[in-house]
Design a protein around this nucleic acid. Structure first.
Lengths: 205, 205
DNA sequence: TTGCAACCGGAAAATGATTTCCTTATAGTC
DNA sequence: GACTATAAGGAAATCATTTTCCGGTTGCAA
């Protein structure tokens, strides 16, 4: 592969990510090409069709999400899940609009499975540490992430307050525990951090 | 308007709602026409274009949501918001896919405003009654509803477990209160009902 | 410096949906 | 039962993409 071709490929991926993030998946490839500063043909030489381009973005996104999960599996007891949500939110914002294609495509099945596996480990650890309700499932986590991505989609491109508050509420819901478990000190450090970041005047606590 | 025309109009609306719910907003008008048992032309005589048809669905959906809110404003102290979420979820499921158009269209601005107004009243009442955290905003509620709609979209057409659990977590997050407020008896009656409806073995409480 | 395989851009064809429009059918009325 | 305004249907025009393809360009190895 020639050096210029490789550079162009990266420019296409970057332009696709930011263009889709701003205007949604329905923007034409022509616009992506313009934003990448390449011709239409250049995109079609690298990707069989539009779907393939989107899939490549999805693959990279999932890879990032999995890496984040694995990183947080090493966190001190029970905190991994919270750190995971916090970081994944940022990645989702950078990939606004892309997530919706993940579940539909069979091409990403193994990646989704890997992602589920890491989510399961995070949930199990959190339950064991008593930082979330004991009936929390990996599906709940996957759906919560999905919903956060949805909120990011509908909010303004760089409105990060909306999804952070949303995340905070979900995580607070996850920790709906019985009294003796609640008394553990570390419980919602990250949670409270996220809530504190949001601007609405918090009269409680 | 002739009687048969009126009947056809309803068939079109119904077919549009269920077709979009099943296959998403991107299905062609031709398919909607088939499902409604009418010709393409029939749809285009009633609606200027596809957008207008979608907008009519949105308008009806918003009308329902507002009616639900107004109904729950009369609920005993602090319970209205929870009942509202419970009922709106069902309506959203019947209108799968449609909600995403609400915010984008200026044509629904007044309806959105009306909806916000009723949400504000529900939130204020809940805060006054001490059944939710005092810093909860109507925006939080709107975003939560949005996210629930998103979860409904991605889940199977008739999977209602996913969104109900999701709703339960969000509402639990909304009630993240200080101890003395928590002790009030009615706090999360509806919440617990919703959680109990979901199948995952609840080992707590 | 040259040769050429790899690459580029963008015009044009193909595709698939929306929308128009005209012919035929029918409900409601007298 | 006949008349007419209103409605239905669907073939064809239009439109917005996606996708193909080819003449011209360029990086790079020899």
């Amino acid at each position: 592969m020639r050096a210029d071709a490789e550079a162009n490929l990266e420019r296409i991926i970057d332009a696709a990510r930011s263009t889709f993030a701003r205007d949604g998946l329905q923007v034409s490839i022509e616009v992506v090409a313009e934003n990448a500063g390449v011709g239409l043909g250049t995109i079609y030489r690298r990707f069989e069709n539009k779907e393939a381009l989107v899939l490549e973005l999805v693959r990279r996104l999932l890879g990032e999400v999995i890496a984040i999960a694995q990183h947080h599996e090493r966190d001190p007891v029970g905190r991994g899940l919270f750190g995971y949500f916090d970081e994944v939110g940022r990645v989702l914002q950078a990939n606004r609009g892309t997530l919706s294609r993940i579940w539909s495509s069979p091409a990403t099945t193994e990646l989704v499975a890997a992602s589920r596996l890491s989510q399961t480990r995070l949930v199990t650890a959190a339950i064991d540490a008593g930082t979330v309700r004991p009936d929390l499932t990996p599906e709940d986590v996957a759906i919560a992430l999905w919903s956060i991505a949805g909120v990011i989609d509908v909010a303004g491109v760089d409105d990060s307050i909306a999804w952070k508050r949303h995340t905070a509420f979900l995580l607070a819901g996850f920790t709906n525990l019985t009294a003796e478990v609640k008394s553990r000190p570390l419980r919602s450090r990250e949670l409270e951090d996220i809530i504190r970041e949001s601007p609405s005047p918090s009269t409680e606590r």
